[in-house]
Every structure is written in C-alpha cells, then in structure tokens.
Amino acid sequence: MSGFGSSMSGRPVDHVLPSPDTMDSTSSLNWSPVSNTLCSSSWDSHVRYWDVQVQPPAMGGGGQAQWHSVPKAESQGHTGPVLDTCYSADGRFIFSAGTDKQVRMWDLGSNSPNTTQVGSHDAPVRSVGFCQEKSLVVSGGWDKQLRFWDCRSPNPVGSFQLEERVYAMDVRGGVLAVALAGKKIVIFSLSGNIQQQMSMDSPLKYQSRCISVFPDQSGFAVGSIEGRCAIQYFQQKPGVAENFAFRCHRQDLNNKTESLVHSVNDISFHNYGTFSTVGGDGVVNFWDKDSKQRLKVMDPVGEAITCANFNAQGNMFAYAKSYDWSKGSGGYGGAGGGRNKICVHYTPEEEIKQRAKKKR
C-alpha cells in the first residue's frame, strides 16, 4: 500500500514482567476483559498470569510510568507446548490449547494450578477463543476441525469440517475469523445459529500468520510471513477506503534495492479502532487504518516479538520477546538465559488515537 506516513519513534523504558528464567518462547498474550490481569502461553507447556498496574507519568512530561506487577501462578495440565489462550467474558477462567491436542480450562478462583480438559482434537490445537454471545469455547486445530464446547459437556456442541488446517483465529462479538493453511480465510457468524458467512482467498500472496477482527466487526486485518498486512472489509461502506495491503515488517537494504523480510507475528486492535503489528524484526508499530498513517514505531528490541495485546482500558500494551521459529529448530537457542521476556508499554492517548486524514 502507499501512503502510510510515520510519526512518533523511539522506545521508552518499558516494564519487564517478573518471570522464571526457564520460561520458553511465548506463543500468546491476552488481557482479562474485566481487569488488568495478563495471561501468557508458552512452549514450556505452561500458562501463566500476572496482575499488572501502572501509574501514568506526571503531567508535563519528562517522567516515566510507575509499575507494579505480581506473578500470580502457572498452570499444570498440558503435556506439550501451549499455543494459545483466551479468557472467559467474566475473567474467571482461562482457556488454553496446545500440541497435546487438548483444550483445557483453568479456574482462577479455585486457587489451584490444575486445569481441566474441556475438549480435544485429533491433532494439535492451534487456536482457542471464547464466544460471549453463546457462552461457548471455540477451538481450531491442525485436524482441519473447528469445534464449539460447552464446559459442562465432554462432547462438542457443534463442529465444522474446514478446508485446511487452522493457522490463526479471532473472535469478536458475533464474528469469528479463521485463517487457514493454503491462504484461505473463513468467516463465521455467531449471531443466531452459528454458520459460515463467507470463504475467501487471503488478499496476501503468502502464508497467513495472524488475523484480527475490527472492534466494530466490519472487517479484519490479516498478516503474513512476507512482512505485509491487509485490511479487508466485509462490505464496502460509503466514505470508507477500499481494501488495501501494505508493507510493515521489512528492512530496506542496499539503498532500498533489496529488502529483508520478516513475518508479521501478531495484530492487536485498540478500542479506538487503531491497531498494532509486531514481527520477526523485533519492531512494534501502531497504525491508523482509516487515515492510513503509522502512528508510532518503536526501536527494535533485539529479538523477535511473537505476540502482543492491548488491555481493555487501552492504556497498556503487552508484547513478548521470544524466538519465533522462523529459522526452524536450528535457530533455537533454548530456554533460559533471559532470552524470553514479556514487556508492558504504557500507551498514552497521543500514541494510539486516530489522526485526521492527510490532505493529498
């Protein structure tokens, strides 16, 4: 895409969450919808969560945000890498999905680290989400199955046979967006009877890596391994820009005659409708899709960023520095040694609020 102008740059002193030195690559980050509690999933088979509080800098600038974070607990139950997590609507339960083919539930009110199995697949489970409209858990796996679970029943209450393996998934309100292998994207409506609403090819040329539904549920953003992101509307609206794609995680080389391409590892929408992308280049970008402007770019953190998420209030942005497996097992340096960090960035309004469209 053309015309994403840039604004603020630099990296303030972000808060590093206390975590065990043995923590492996982080695969997902999610905030509770009702509190400043952050959960993560890891390749070391654990789910962890923290209570995080921030005191904004004093008025007038020049100061730093003040942080207080407490590690609460880590789960037990998964027997392989955990690939995704989500919260229930009331924030009491964390649901997790992993390579052990299980979907598990952690009751945070039980004061126990033990989790309960609520579902399973015939292959690793890549993604899990919570459908608030139905009070159901939805999981997508590499067995090409999309399954819906009522935690009171051991059997799925609904399932869909998909064309390909699930690579990424996002649930927001009445919309479920699923990115599949083979560059396929499937959209489901969760209002009324759950049904497939549309199926399409990705607007990007290469494999999908992440997908995120707009806060107003009018479309979605999808990122790929080629360092590009696409903005796609379900229906074009009067006065709304057409669908477009743009480069976001690439480094220009040799006077911009060549590019070093990094995967777009995660996309997270702020409640303003602006959004972040993070990638294998270790860079965080904030964007405004409506005005087609880059709002902020942070300096590289020295390691790939595997996942990121805004809290419900919108004043905290969590991101994970971890190996993203882009170079296969040969690039893995092992857990420990402080390589894997989860950081939280204070997000003032001026960094993430929408901007007026630039005059042409």
Rank of each mutant, 00 (worst) to 15 (best):
A89D: 04
V54L: 01
T79D: 15
V54S: 03
T26E: 09
D122T: 08
P20F: 12
G280S: 13
I94A: 14
T99W: 12
D266V: 02
F188T: 01
S28Q: 09
C39S: 11
C343D: 09
A73Y: 11
V264Y: 03
C210G: 03
K359M: 14
L162S: 09
G141Q: 03
I185P: 04
C307K: 02
A221Q: 02
G109I: 01
Y272V: 10
S259P: 03
V128Q: 06
Q145D: 02
A245K: 09
Y323H: 09
V70A: 15
P20Y: 07
G98C: 08
I185R: 07
E164Y: 14
Q293F: 10
F246T: 04
L190D: 02
P215F: 11
A177K: 06
V278R: 04
A168T: 03
Q117N: 13
R147M: 07
H15K: 08
M198N: 11
P300A: 04
R48D: 05
V264D: 00
Q76S: 13
Q235S: 13
G174M: 14
M169V: 02
F93H: 01
S127Q: 04
Q217A: 13
G314M: 06
P57M: 10
S322K: 06
P56T: 08
G158S: 09
A312M: 10
I187K: 09
A304L: 12
V138L: 06
G80V: 00
N311P: 05
G336A: 13
S41P: 00
D324K: 01
W43T: 00
K321C: 07
C248T: 02
G61E: 01
N111F: 11
P113L: 11
S224D: 12
D290F: 11
K183T: 08
V137G: 03
Q161S: 11
S135D: 01
S322R: 00
Q251C: 12
E351G: 09
G98H: 07
N243L: 10
T99E: 14
N271P: 01
K292M: 15
S6Y: 08
Q53V: 06
W287I: 06
V283N: 05
Q132G: 04
R11I: 05
N155Q: 15
S322V: 00
L108V: 04
D143M: 07
V34R: 12
C307P: 01
G333A: 14
T85W: 14
I231H: 05
Y323Q: 05
I211T: 01
V213D: 08
V301H: 08
G314D: 07
Q313P: 00
A304I: 04
S191T: 07
E164K: 15
D150A: 15
G141M: 05
S159D: 13
Q251G: 13
S88L: 04
R339A: 12
D84Q: 08
L38P: 07
D21M: 08
Y346A: 00
V82R: 10
